[in-house]
Every structure is written in C-alpha cells, then in structure tokens.
Design a protein around this nucleic acid. Structure first.
Lengths: 345, 345
DNA sequence: ATCATCCATGTAAAGGTTTACATTGTGCGA
DNA sequence: TCGCACAATGTAAACCTTTACATGGATGAT
C-alpha cells in the first residue's frame, strides 16, 4: 500500500523545522541553500531532503528585513489601462525574471495619497527598485529622490531628469511621420495635440517643425492646436479648425488617441477617409487597427523599451551608482490606410 | 534667519531613533502610534514631534513579520491588458483603501512559473488576501487552497468552487441579449464562441438556449460555433458559417472581442451593418464604441464587481471563516447601433 | 497610615532570516 | 608527536516591529 504523503505543515514550515529534521543548525540550512559549496555533500543532501519533506520556502519578508533589500521591482503606473502599458510590461518582466527579480505593479491613478502608500512600501525595503511609467512623479514633485531605491523612468523623464529614463525618440519619430505626409504631397498640415506640460508631446511637436522647416513650409501654413492626448481632445481640436474655416489636407496627431478623435470627427462630418483627408498618429495602440480607415502611425518599440529599462535598473541595483542616462530608441513608421495623396483642388 | 530644515536621516529612521529623541522606550512610541489613548498626552506630543523631525514611517515589513499578516491585497491577473481588468481595478482599490488596505497587482501571463513566484510572496505573508481574475488558478490546479490566504475569484469560479467568487450573472445577461434579438424579430440566430473550458462562456451559451427555448425556436434553427473569445476566433467562425452556406440574420457573440471579429468579417464581405445583419456582444469593452456600427452589447457591472469582491474578501479577513459564497450581479443591455430588424426576404 | 487599584511606562521576547565569529575535528608536514 | 591550517558546523547578533508582562508611582478608600 502506498503511504499517505507526508502532511505539509499547516502553517508553512520555517528554517527551524528543516534544521530539526536534518539534524543541523539553522545556519547550515541557510548555507546549504545559498552557498552549497560550503556545506559537506552528505549534509547538503540531508538538508535538501528535509526541505522537500517540509515543503519549506524561505520567508521572503524575513529575508528582506535581514538583508535590507528585497528581490522585487515595483512598477508604478497612473493608469493600468493605458494601451502602452500592458505590452511594455512583458518586456520588463522577462528581463527581471532572467535576473531573479519579480515584478509588482502599483496603480496610482495620479492620486498622491495612493502614491504615498507605495512610497511607504518602498521605504520598508519591500522593493529593491522602482520603475515609473509615463513621466509621472507619483509622490508629488518635491520628493527627495535620495530616499528612493534605484529608479528608472519609462517613456518620459521624471524628477527633472535626476534619474535615468528609457523612451522613444519622439522628435525623430514625429519627424518621420511628418516626412511621410510631406512625401505624399501634403503641404497644409495641422498638428493636433500641442502640450505645455508633457515633454514627450513637446518633442513630437518639435519633430513636426523640423520636418516642415526642412521642406521649407512657411510657419504661417502650419496649424497647431492644443490637446491633452485624449480622443475627446482630437474631436475638439477639429471643431476649432472648422470654426476657423482653414481646413488643411492632413492631420498629424500627437498620439493615436487624438488621431482616433480626429478620424471620428471627420467621418461624422461626412468626409470619406482617406480620400478627402489624411491622418497620421503616434504610438500604434491596438485600437489603431480597428478604426476606419486603419491608422498609419509611428510604432512605439514597446518590448524593447521594457527590456532596456529593466536592464538599466538592474545594472544600477547590482553595480555602483551611475549618473543618470537617457536611452532613446528609434521608432518605425507603420503604413496602414489613413494617409494618401491630398485631393486635387 | 530661518533655520535650515532638520536633515532627514539618510537611511530612513527607525522606531529607536524616535524613542531616543522623545526620551521614551520604543514600546511607548509604538503605543503612541497604534493606541494613543494609552499614552499620556504630554508623552504623546513629544513622540509625535520626534516622528515629525525624523520623518519616521513604520517599516511595513518588520511590522508584517511580527504580526504575521500584512495590509496588502494581491490581485493576480493573467493579462493586465484585458479591458475588463483596468476598470474593475478602480472599484477594488477604492474599497480596499477605505479599509486601510493597499493593492498590488501581479501579472501571471498564464505562466505557472510566474504564478509560483507570487505564491512565495503570499507564503511570506506579504499579502493578507488574494484576488484571482478570470477564473485562472495561477499555481496549477493541484495547489492546496489551505496554504493560501483568504481568496476571492473575480468573474469566474476558481479551484472548483472551493472559494467565493463575484461575477456577473452570465446566464441572465445572455438571455437578455438573446431576447433583444428575438424581440427585434430575428429567428435564425447564430451563437459564436461555444467553449468547453470557460464556465462563464458556457453559461452565456445556456442563457442563449433558454431564451430560444422560451421563444420555441427549434434547436435545428440554431447555429452554434466554437471560439476562444478572441477577435480572430470571431472571424474564423464567420468563415465556417459562410462555407456551410447557412447564413443567419443575427449573431450573438460570447463576448465583444468575438463580436468585433464578426463585424469586421461581415464588413469585409461587403455586408452593410446593421441593415443586412445584426450582431450583439457581451462585456461592453471600450472598443465596442469605436467599431462601426457601435456594438449593442451586455454591460459588465465592473466597478460593482470590484467593490463587492473586495468587500467580500475583507470580510473574511477580519471576520471568522465563512463558507464559499457566490455573488452574481445582474448586467444590463446597452443598446447601440448593431442590432435592427432582420432584412426582408 | 495602609493597602488595593490603576495608569503610564519600561523590559524583553518573538517573528524568520543571514552572517560574522567561535568552535570543533580532520589531515598533513615537520 | 606536535602543531597548524582548513573545512564543516554551530552560536548568537542583527534587521525592526508589536505586545505580554513587570514595574513603579500616584490616587483613593478605609
């Protein structure tokens, strides 16, 4: 008859249980786990057996308390639903896992109270490193970075550039987008989504200007409208343009959400796209494929950003402190159906 | 002249620093924080002052280690990008926060290895409770639930119903959807997304059958196609229907993603919707608004589910153990543009 | 004046690890 | 045979809290 399997201890086993069973001291158990070469083979075997029987797993909390450092990385995002977020996460996690780190996610909702909760988490050494999504400084801007563990920003700089960040080369990407419109023959182009606060969006504006400068399009021929990067803001900007009565032949939008707003607005006004108007976005979010027409846009190299950001973070965890470093990855143009030649006058 | 502000200790202050400064014992400090009524007013003031000066925040890890329980809730999801997830999260977090708990998110990607990492996290008492998204059992199905902290499932039952879950009443919701199609005059209706594994989807199928039974639609008039709930699966099922040459007048899809696949497929074949075909979905994901035509669907009461699930979890944290309990919330029909009368023959 | 209460505070243990240092025992060279 | 080096293991402190229990002093009743 088969023996019933050994009962796993109801509340999980401690290192002491293992030591007792293996008839060694707890120090030896710890060594058998972390520096096996310092333990005699026979002892090691007994310990491993005892671990198997008890089902022991080391209490990460006690471990971190003692070591003053955990092996978790905290990723803080203002909005988990951000379509950029979920795809970047996989890159982050793969890289972390390869180095023995786990990833936890915190959702701040741009609420400083919540940010503070996570700050306490960090101050208790419950995470060894911090990743900040989309340039938000979740603890209020005055936070001293000295109290934080090693930190890397994702997509946008944080804390006035006091820390490293990994992002896309917004200027170059935007320039590619604008050049695509120019080379399709457009001359009157509107830029939708001017921002005073978001650096990335400012850079995209700059890329737009660089391309149009190079093509010698006079500044007076450029329409620039403000927007906060939401679908609604795209629609709104469109209204303003039509109120002024100066319709361009193409729209370059600061991101895909804005572009979707513009596309919807144009369709609602009876324009047939892309015959009557061309629209280009930035980001390549999943929805970009499902708009009609599918959006031509600039693709965020998401998994590359995730991988590099985590790699950078892990370096500063293990290695010595290094000066902040900005890594910009070049994005690519994705041609779909929303850009064609301008209509004949 | 203003004094320079007191330097915050470089590595964060411990309770001992506070005690020294306030000239009391660490026990008194702890009491001043947690049971202030047991500390003399004057002492309490001195302690509070010392806390302010040192910038002390209690080390959550040491606290949890001592108390054998933390005040964090872990939410485990196979796919953070799931459009249901982000909106449910807010409900969860609000409820948790109101009771002094924080929320951390783990992304399992349906990878048992990652699941195991989070299991270690739990076994170290780093989270007091667990929330499982979409019926996935991230540690492999054989895991003994005894080792887990109090756990509640979201949307679908987990561990064969051994734990409570909060979800939508899929059967009733699907019935509402089917009845909407019936009352619009449809008689030949296809159900897209039959599943052998996902219970929620099976229930939706059942709601479909109940409605059609009640309307005395013979079983032979019902088309049922398999699908795994992805956009692609919707498109695929559509192909099969056309290959068989038995087009219905309406499609009831197991979820919105499937419905989007069907809508795209129909448009690609030149059908004009909703004139030629009606389509109804389930879930009401954000994209449902941006398809053409906007999708009529059944709305998941997301924030209610989040709130209730967290409330249920918190109850079993504080109160005594209770038997597993299933809470089903009734979803509502959202009428948009994808359902009309069937075309005349 | 004596004693019992009670309030405010301190002492010390416990929670589960890791690791510097101390101890033991073995083998080897002289 | 002695002593030394080194390998294997054990002892105990430290990480930072919380809390049961002990202590001391003041208050009030008798």
């Amino acid at each position: 008859m088969a023996q019933p399997p050994p009962l796993p201890s109801p509340s999980s086993a401690t290192i002491e249980d293992v030591a007792r069973l293996a008839e060694v001291s707890i120090a030896t158990v710890s060594r058998a786990i972390h520096t096996p070469e310092k333990v005699a083979t026979s002892t090691r075997q007994r310990v491993n057996q005892a671990i198997a029987i008890t089902g022991y797993t080391t209490n990460a909390m006690a471990r971190s308390l003692r070591m003053g450092r955990s092996n978790m990385i905290l990723v803080l995002a203002p909005d988990i639903g951000d379509p950029n977020f979920s795809s970047i996460l996989v890159g982050l996690e793969n890289e972390a896992r390869a180095h023995g780190y786990g990833v936890l996610i915190g959702h701040t909702q741009n609420d400083p109270e919540r940010g503070l909760d996570y700050l306490k988490f960090l101050n208790s050494n419950q995470a060894a490193g911090l990743l900040l999504f989309t340039g938000h400084a979740p603890f209020g801007h005055q936070t001293m970075t000295e109290r934080l563990p090693p930190t890397v920003g994702l997509f946008e700089p944080v804390f006035n550039g006091q820390i490293s960040y990994v992002g896309v080369d917004d200027t170059a990407g935007a320039r590619k987008a604008a050049e695509h419109l120019l080379s399709s023959g457009h001359r009157r182009i509107a830029f939708i989504g001017e921002s005073r606060t978001r650096l990335g969006h400012q850079r995209r504006r700059r890329g737009f200007d660089l391309a149009l400068d190079a093509a010698r399009i006079p500044a007076t021929d450029r329409l620039v409208l403000e927007g906060d990067g939401t679908i609604e803001s795209g629609r709104l900007a469109l209204e303003q343009i039509f109120m002024r009565g100066e319709a361009p032949t193409a729209f370059m939008c600061v991101n895909d959400a804005t572009a979707i707003g513009v596309v919807n607005g144009l369709s609602a006004r009876g324009y047939e796209l892309p015959r009557d108007m061309s629209v280009i976005g930035f980001d390549d979010i999943p929805q970009a494929t499902y708009v009609h027409p599918p959006l031509t846009t600039i693709r965020q190299p998401r998994s590359a950003i995730g991988r590099q950001a985590m790699a950078l973070l892990l370096q500063s965890l293990d290695g010595p402190a290094r000066p902040p470093e900005d890594i910009l990855i070049m994005p690519d143009l994705v041609v779909r159906g929303s850009v064609t030649l301008p209509p004949r006058r």
